[in-house]
Computed example of a mutant assay.
Amino acid sequence: MKQQWRLLLLALGFFTRLPLPEIKDFRQSDLNEAARYFPLVGWLVGIVAAVAVGLLGDIVPLEVAIILSMMATAYLTGGFHEDGLADSVDGLGGGWEKEQALTIMKDSRLGSYGAMALVFTLLLKFESLLHISVTLLPLVLFAGHALSRLAAVLVIATQDYVRDEGKAKPLAHHLSKTSLLLAALFGLLPMLFLSLQLWAAMLPVAVVWIWFSLKLKKRLGGYTGDCLGAMQQLTEIAFYLGVLIWS
C-alpha cells in the first residue's frame, strides 16, 4: 500500500499543481508504473469541475459557471494538457518532416496553428457543456476527465516515445499488464454513473483516438509528452459531443 500511495502521489505531481510532499529515491520506473493512476487523477479534476458547476450554477448564469469550472481545472493542472495540444498542433501543422515537427513542438512560443487550436477547442468544449442537461453535467464532467486520461495512457501502451529526453521520457517504457488494467478500471468506472444509452458517447472517443494515434504514428513514429496532452483534450471534447448526440 505504501508503494501504491507513492505512485499515486507521483501521478498527482505529474499532472497537477497540488502541493505534495517530496518523493524520495525517485526512480524512472516509478513514474512508468504511476501511469496506472492517471485516470484516477482525472477523477480529482473531474470532481473539481463538477463541484464548481454545481455550486456556482445556483449563483451565476450557467454560462459563467461553466467558464469558471474550466478555469478551475486549468488552474489545477497548470494548463498542462492545453499546452500540449497547442504545441502538438503547431508541430504537426507547421513541420513537414519528423525532426522539424519535433523542433517546433519543443519551442515554447505559441504559433498560429496552436493558437487556433486552443480557441476552437475551448469554444467547442464550452458550447458542448452548455447544451448538456444541468442535472447530467456533473456526472459527464467526472466521466470525461477520467476517460480522456485513459486515452492518453493507451497511447503510452501502444506507441513508442520519440524524444531522447523530455518530461514524459520516464513514461517511455511500455506499461505492465497490471498498470494497464488498473488504468482501464479507473478510466471506465465513472461511466457506471451514466445511463447505458450514454455509453455510446465512447464511440466518438474511440474514433478520435484511432485517428490521432494513426496521425502520430505516421508523422512522428510515436508520441511525445505534448501528444499525450493533445490526446486528452481531443478525446475529452469527443466524449462531450458524444453525450450531446446520444442524450
Rank of each mutant, 00 (worst) to 15 (best):
K2C: 00
Q3T: 14
L10A: 06
A11F: 09
A11I: 13
A11H: 10
L12Y: 01
F15W: 15
F15D: 10
F15E: 12
L20W: 10
P21F: 08
P21S: 13
E22P: 00
I23K: 13
D25Q: 08
F26E: 15
D30K: 01
L31Y: 12
E33C: 04
F38W: 14
P39D: 09
L40N: 12
V41Y: 03
L44R: 13
L44D: 07
I47N: 04
I47M: 04
V48K: 15
A49Q: 10
A52E: 12
L56K: 08
P61F: 10
P61H: 12
E63I: 07
I67H: 05
S69P: 00
S69I: 08
M70Q: 10
A72T: 02
T73H: 03
A74C: 08
Y75C: 06
F80D: 09
H81R: 08
E82A: 09
E82D: 08
D83H: 04
D83F: 03
L85H: 02
D87E: 12
L92P: 01
G94C: 07
G95P: 00
E97R: 14
K98A: 05
K98M: 06
E99V: 11
A101G: 05
L102N: 02
G111M: 11
S112A: 15
S112T: 15
Y113I: 01
G114E: 13
A115C: 10
A115K: 04
A117L: 06
F120E: 05
K125R: 15
F126P: 00
S128D: 02
L129M: 15
S133H: 08
L136F: 05
L139D: 08
G144V: 07
H145T: 01
A146D: 14
A146I: 11
L147Q: 05
A152R: 12
V155L: 05
I156G: 03
I156M: 09
I156V: 15
A157C: 07
A157V: 09
A157G: 02
T158P: 00
T158F: 03
T158R: 07
Q159P: 00
Q159G: 00
K167Q: 07
A168P: 01
A172Q: 10
S176H: 07
T178D: 14
T178Q: 15
S179C: 05
L181S: 15
L181V: 11
G187W: 14
G187K: 12
L189R: 13
L189V: 13
P190E: 07
L194W: 12
Q197I: 10
W199C: 04
M202V: 14
L203H: 07
L203F: 03
V207C: 03
V208E: 13
I210R: 12
F212L: 04
S213Q: 09
K218V: 08
Y223L: 01
G229H: 12
A230H: 02
Q232C: 04
L234C: 02
T235I: 06
A238Y: 03
F239Y: 07
F239K: 06
Y240E: 11
L244P: 00
I245P: 00
